[in-house]
Simulated scan of single mutants.
Amino acid sequence: MKKRAERINEISVMLAEEAYKAYTGKKDYKRALEIYSMLATYECIPKNISNYSKNMMSRLGKKIEDNK
């Protein structure tokens, strides 16, 4: 069980990094939104990553509104 939790944590961090790169570097807001929404809603995601994803989703929402 501990090994599974470690693997979930590792993958969550990798996904959060990928979403951040999509948000800042590539300006691929759709991809970033997909990843952040998944990280924010799934129950098995660690709390700190989930909270970070929720925060980034709100930033992303403001960024999308500004571009319209």
Rank of each mutant, 00 (worst) to 15 (best):
M38A: 05
L39I: 02
Y42R: 13
K30I: 13
M14P: 01
R31K: 15
V13N: 08
G61I: 12
K27D: 09
S12T: 11
Y36I: 07
A19M: 07
E17D: 12
A40N: 04
A19L: 09
L33V: 00
K47Q: 07
K54W: 03
A40R: 03
E18F: 06
E17K: 05
P46Y: 04
N51K: 05
E43K: 10
K26E: 15
E10Q: 14
K68V: 11
L60C: 06
M14K: 14
Y29G: 05
A22F: 03
V13G: 06
L33D: 00
D66M: 13
P46F: 00
A40L: 02
Y36K: 05
S12M: 04
E43S: 14
N67T: 12
E10R: 15
L15W: 11
N55F: 13
E6K: 14
K63C: 05
R4F: 10
E34T: 08
S12H: 04
K2A: 10
E43V: 02
N9K: 15
I11N: 09
R4E: 14
T24G: 04
K26F: 07
Y52H: 06
N51L: 04
S53R: 05
A19K: 13
L33K: 11
T41H: 04
A19S: 13
I45K: 00
K21P: 00
A22D: 10
L33A: 00
I35E: 00
A16N: 01
S58V: 06
D66S: 13
L60K: 05
V13Y: 07
A5Y: 11
K27M: 08
L15Q: 08
E17T: 04
